[in-house]
């Protein structure tokens, strides 16, 4: 069992957890993730390690309540435990001094973009962050992102805070203003990552995305997370999760992520129903 040291909501439905996991805290690098299993009947869910404190022996994860498991996780409080946390998994982000690096986070993807943005800053890059959310109340990690950025932008789809529009519009604006950009990292929903790849492709800007296929073991033994990169099949859990955005078959990823849509809905509804019955909802 892995003890939760702290649990706080960053926005509606988005919760940040600090979890005791000393071996993982000591080892993890930016871009890596853990697989968690909330309870003994639970499924294995991949979540990016947003931060770690090797001295305290804790890691930080940020979860958005989307399906049954993440909603169940988001009901956990400090002092509660989760059954399993395994990691760090995946290949760490490739970090070097590219020059000017733009880190783009969409929604809860910001939590994934943050550790890599921080590592890019530490490697000497001029870091620009673009942090996108649907509306003001869903903006997360604003201060953290600012602290690791030379320039920080917030965009909201409805214009309720910061730049009114999508992250891609802000990125296009930066490119059009003649800013020399050497590297772009984009993490968020699949359509957003695809849109960023489409913006940078004509300019030949090296662009990396962190993919989020369905995973089970996370150690390379099942191929459930396989993605098409160029013409090759790769396993996101060991070869990734970060890949060259201009080589990714985003349509295939989106198609494959829909396989359990029906079951996810069923499990989610059953969970909500059970919570209401037990008065926890």
């Amino acid at each position: 069992m892995y003890r939760i040291v702290s649990a706080i909501f960053l926005a509606e439905n988005i919760k940040k957890f600090e979890i005791e996991a000393p071996m993982i805290a000591k080892k993890r690098k930016a871009g890596q993730f853990v697989i968690v299993r909330i309870n003994p009947n639970g499924e294995r869910v991949p979540l990016t390690i947003a931060d770690s404190d090797p001295e305290k022996g804790t890691i930080t994860i940020i979860a958005q309540g989307a399906g049954k498991s993440t909603r169940e996780l988001n009901r956990k409080e400090a002092g509660d435990s989760i059954a399993d946390v395994v990691g760090p998994l995946g290949t760490p982000s490739h970090i070097e001094n590219f020059g000017t690096a733009v880190s783009i986070g969409g929604g809860v993807g910001t939590a994934i973009a943050y550790p890599t943005a921080k590592a890019l800053k530490e490697a000497g890059n001029y870091v620009i962050t673009i942090n996108g959310a649907r509306s003001k109340d869903l903006v997360i990690l604003e201060d953290e992102m600012k602290a690791v950025s030379d320039e920080a932008y917030i965009t909201t789809d409805d214009g309720s805070y910061g730049f009114n529009g999508f992250v891609t519009q802000k990125l296009q604006e930066l490119i059009d203003s003649g800013k020399k950009i050497d590297f772009v990292l984009a993490i968020g929903p699949i359509p957003m990552m695809k849109a960023v790849a489409d913006v940078t492709r004509p300019h030949g800007i090296k662009t990396v995305v962190s993919l989020n296929p369905i995973m089970i073991d996370g150690t390379g033994m099942c191929g459930g997370c396989r993605v098409t990169i160029g013409n090759e099949i790769k396993f996101a859990c060991i070869d990734g999760p970060e890949f060259d955005a201009h080589q990714v078959d985003f349509k295939n990823l989106a198609d494959r992520n829909r396989i359990y849509q029906h079951e996810e809905k069923e499990a989610g509804e059953a969970f909500e129903h059970a919570c209401k019955l037990h008065g926890q909802g």
């Binding site: 099942c222 459930g224 396989i259």
Partner: peptide
């Protein structure tokens, strides 16, 4: 081979047996 509904025996059996 990457169509939805094509999977490895490892994945299928892991889901059913382990999970």
């Amino acid at each position: 081979e990457n169509l939805v509904g094509v999977l490895s025996a490892n994945e299928f059996l892991t889901r059913v047996n382990l999970m």
